[in-house]
């Protein structure tokens, strides 16, 4: 039995400890907003926050999150309401197929929590782990900047965000 917090609620699961968090959230807790894309931590479609950090949950065994706090796309804003990042995504018509966008928004949210006013290079660095096959990158970048300006000086600094590097992810990768 593994206990953790999911979108603010204490939960527990009997899933085998090596099950990636992504599949626990999707299959056991039936939250379908986080997506499966690669299973190797290479595409970012599965991105959630673990104690505020953006992580690739397709390669994170659920045993590793005992006692920790997980936030998914369903937990970043109240149902039916949109935070400034989501609203910027809507205003810029960012999504095309939309499949990667939960992960994109989770990475962007973690970035702005840590760095409320990122440079272009910092946006690139924080977002380079999230692939979009529809090529929405220019709009994602524009939307992040819009969210920054909407947040104004109210943006608060949050917890540290783990930056993505492909080599790190590959070493721990699970070829499924």
């Amino acid at each position: 039995m593994i206990n953790f917090t999911l979108n603010g609620k204490a939960v527990s699961t009997e899933a085998p400890g090596d099950t990636p968090l992504l599949w626990v959230v999707r299959d056991y807790f039936k939250l379908k907003g986080s997506k499966f894309g690669c299973g190797m931590g290479l595409c970012g479609a599965c991105t959630m926050h673990l104690d505020g950090q953006a992580i690739r949950t397709c390669i994170t065994p659920v045993a590793a999150i005992e006692g920790k706090s997980v936030t998914t796309i369903e937990g970043v804003s109240p149902k039916g309401a949109y935070n400034s990042i989501q609203q910027a995504w809507i205003d810029h018509s960012v999504p095309q197929c939309g499949y990667c966008q939960s992960g994109q928004i989770m990475s962007a949210t973690a970035l702005l929590a840590r760095n409320p006013n990122p440079t272009d290079a910092e946006i690139d660095q924080a977002m380079q782990g999230n692939i979009c096959r529809c090529g929405t990158y220019p709009r994602i970048k524009a939307a992040i900047k819009k969210a920054v300006s909407d947040n104004g000086s109210n943006g608060s600094s949050g917890s540290e965000v783990a930056y993505y590097t492909p080599s790190n992810q590959l070493e721990g990768g699970n070829n499924a």
């Binding site: 939309g98 966008q101 939960s102």
Partner: peptide, 8 residues
Amino acid sequence: DAPAKVDG
């Protein structure tokens, strides 16, 4: 279709 694609 954007709103449904930003909240999962």
